[in-house]
Amino acid sequence: MKCTADSVLSIEDLHIHFPTDQELIRAVNGVSFSIPRGRTLALVGESGCGKTVTAYSILKLIEKPGKIVSGKITLYPKEENPVAIASLHPKSDTLYRLRGQMVSMVFQEPMTALSPVHTIGSQVAESLRIHENKSRKQAEALTVDMFRRVGIPGPRARLKQYPYEISGGMRQRVVIAMALICQPELLIADEPTTALDVTIQAEIMNLMKELQKQMNLSILLITHDLGLVAQNADDVAVMYMGRIVEQGPVRKIIKTPRHPYTIALLKSLPGLHPAGEPLESIRGSVPSGACIPPGCPFHPRCKYAQKNLCDRGRPPESQPLSPDHRVACLRAEEIQA
């Protein structure tokens, strides 16, 4: 996917490292993607593949000792000049303004994303008061309106409640209200429904889709659940060990995956499997980011890996199979799911 004029975000060749006392952990190694306005890009991968770190880097929320080593992150606000994020100081005014106003986040655990000692009303109104200089009254009215839009029943009475008084699904709605109250252009949703039940998950995802349509919102959806991806994303980028191994429109990735990792992930889902046959699993587990295997990082677990081809040299570059479908595999041409 090339960066087009109508993107909200583009990331080019991003590298993020975490130097520790003992070793250097390479969390993100050359990630590039862009998100078109009004669409949903899903970043998929197992834990430790670098998807969360990539997302956090967009707002420079990476904690020490993590560092953006190289690469470009550019945000394109609607009525302003593009902003290059990677070179900004983490405490700069520009970032302070962008956070919450142009880009906002929804986190995995709604309980830890909310302050336990403030009422939910004041937490949601806070960003209005800070970013848009609204008076207490105005902010309250807008909050009530937002609560109504995210489907919180009895919004006015809820303003004065604390997070412990409401259920998990309601809390996630509050977090979404908080994220959307300043009408951002990009919403980063980091595993927004992992902590919730399927029924609540369905409700939250439907709500996000609904609001996306109303507000022409772009969403970066971070998840490990391919079912959620198939139902909600427009484009997909599959990550493994800090690299995007395959990216393209959702239908192509799910129906005709070409990277062995994507193929294996889809085959290991019990939902797509006839009962009785053993599930196809990927052998071994994800290696640590400190000792990335040479050659293609996936080769030790790959069933298509070829000796003397996949296990040496530099990791394979991402090649276009068709204009909108890119795969980083040396044998992508031969492999059919």
């Binding site: 197992e46 490990h224 992930l265 290991s268 990927i282």
Partner: peptide
Amino acid sequence: DVSVQAQII
């Protein structure tokens, strides 16, 4: 994770 989940099942 999904891939490990399949191994355990």
